[in-house]
Every structure is written in C-alpha cells, then in structure tokens.
C-alpha cells in the first residue's frame, strides 16, 4: 500500500459541449507530495483540479482518491470530506461569521460538538494568522484574510489532500504573500497539495513537481527547478517566457 498514489488519475477525458477540455490526462500524486500545475487559461488545469473532487464530471477515464474510486454519489461525498478545496473567489458563506464558516461543515458532516468545532476554528485561525477575526463577517475582511479563512475552513475537516484553484489570482498584489506563506507552511507540514497557480516562487520553494498543461494535455512534468529553468519542450519555454516577464 505504501507506493499506492493518494490520487490516481487515468486517461481522463472531459467535454464541454463540443470543446474537448481534457484529452486523456493521467497523473499520480503521492502522499505528502506538492504538485503545482501551470498553463495558459483554457488549458484545462482548473477543470482537472475540479475533477479530482468531482465538482466537474468527467466523460471517460477514472480517478481514484485515497483508494476510493469517484463513481457513486456516496463515494463522491466520501472523497469530498477527505479533500479540501480552496477557490479563486474564496467562496466564503457571507451570511455566516468567520467562525461559523469554519464550524458549519464540522458540525453537520463530522458531527463535532459546538465546543469541539469552536476549538478547531480557534486553533486554525491562529494558524493562518487572523485569530481576532472570528466574529466578523466575510465581507468585512480583506481578500487575503478571506482566502486565509477559506483555507482554515477546508483544513477544519482534517483533509488528507488540499486542492488550490488559483488561490491568489483574485488578490491585490500586497496580499498574495500572506496567503502563500500559509500554503508554504502547509506544504512543510507534509500536506498533499495540488495547486493551480502561476506563483513560480511558491512552486520553486514548495513543490516536488511542476506540470505544464496546454490544450487539455500535460505537456511537461518535472521537478520545478528543471521545469522553470531548463524546460525541454518548446511550448513550456514559450509559456514561461511570457509568464516570467
């Protein structure tokens, strides 16, 4: 069981109407690994990420997460409780306080007591560096603070895997680092992470592997220092020359 990948993606195809968004993508992620996916918009990187917790249905192929195949509704919900997801637009629940945001799923999915959930929320808010915001509502927070709450909300479920879908793309430049710092710490703690992001600095510092996707396929896959500094594929060079400028 030790070398069984925690995420196994095999020949996954996805169509949006006539658009072939994923063209047979295969990818294994090991436990504790941090994988960063880059690529131009429309390359299918977010779609692939969303397939891992089945927010997006795929048309062909299979995905097995932590030994559970994504097929039945029960399995999908089981996988979702083990996989945390962080979105570009934060998607905090605006009608609930920060603390309630973090406690809601703990209470109804994990069936934790009120005190237990509150304790988890308190610890996680301290961990993401905003212990004093528990009673505030999301619209009262800055983007960077909201995204850190979103990370805390996902972590409260004790996920085995964290997925990040362009977590810093909607943030003002000066708020990007505070979110990346939280992610770097998570990576150091050994969390399995799949990150769609163009933050090359984060990829170099935290990732075990970097992947370039284009046109629904994986173009190149290598250690980040190799992919960013010495890519083999022309497509990768072209993309990096535009991003790194």
């Amino acid at each position: 069981m030790t070398d069984e990948p925690i995420i196994h993606i095999e020949n996954v195809h996805k169509y949006f109407g006539h658009v072939h968004a994923l063209k047979g993508v295969s990818l294994d992620v090991q436990k504790g690994e941090v994988v960063v996916i880059i690529g131009p918009s429309g390359s299918g990187k977010s779609t692939l990420l969303r397939c891992i917790n089945r927010l997006e249905e795929f048309d062909k192929g299979k995905i097995i997460v932590d030994g559970i195949p994504l097929d039945t509704a029960a399995n999908i919900n089981a996988v979702r409780t083990e996989v945390g997801m962080v979105f570009q637009q934060f998607n905090l629940f605006p009608h609930l306080t920060v603390q309630e945001n973090i406690c809601l799923a703990q209470r109804i999915i994990r069936h934790r007591s009120k005190e237990e959930a509150a304790k988890v929320a308190k610890d996680l808010l301290a961990k993401v560096g905003i212990p004093d915001k528990a009673k505030m509502y999301p619209p009262q927070l800055s983007g960077g603070q909201q995204q850190r709450v979103a990370i805390a909300r996902a972590l409260a479920m004790n996920p085995k895997i964290m997925l990040f879908d362009e977590p810093t793309s909607a943030l003002d430049p000066e708020m990007i680092q505070e979110v990346l710092d939280v992610m770097l710490n998570l990576a150091k703690e050994g969390m399995t992470m799949v990150v769609v992001s163009h933050e090359i600095g984060f990829a170099k510092a935290a990732a075990n592997r970097a992947i370039l996707m284009d046109d629904g396929q994986i173009v190149e896959e290598a250690a980040p220092e190799i992919l960013f500094n010495n890519p083999k594929q022309e497509r990768t060079k072209l993309f990096l020359s535009k991003v790194l400028k």
């Binding site: 919900n77 409780t81 979105f87 998607n91 629940f93 809601l104 109804i108 909300r153 479920m157």
Partner: peptide
Amino acid sequence: KGQMEAARSLGMTYFQAMRYVILPQ
C-alpha cells in the same frame, strides 16, 4: 454558483448545502 461548490466540496449533500448555505442567503 461558487457557494454551492464550496458547500459541496466540504462534503455537504445537495440538500444540506441548500438548507445551510443557499436558502438562508
């Protein structure tokens, strides 16, 4: 739509997401 997605990604069923996240809003 992101509200439903966030709720579902936390493991809530469709009806839990409706009850606790979508309908109150």
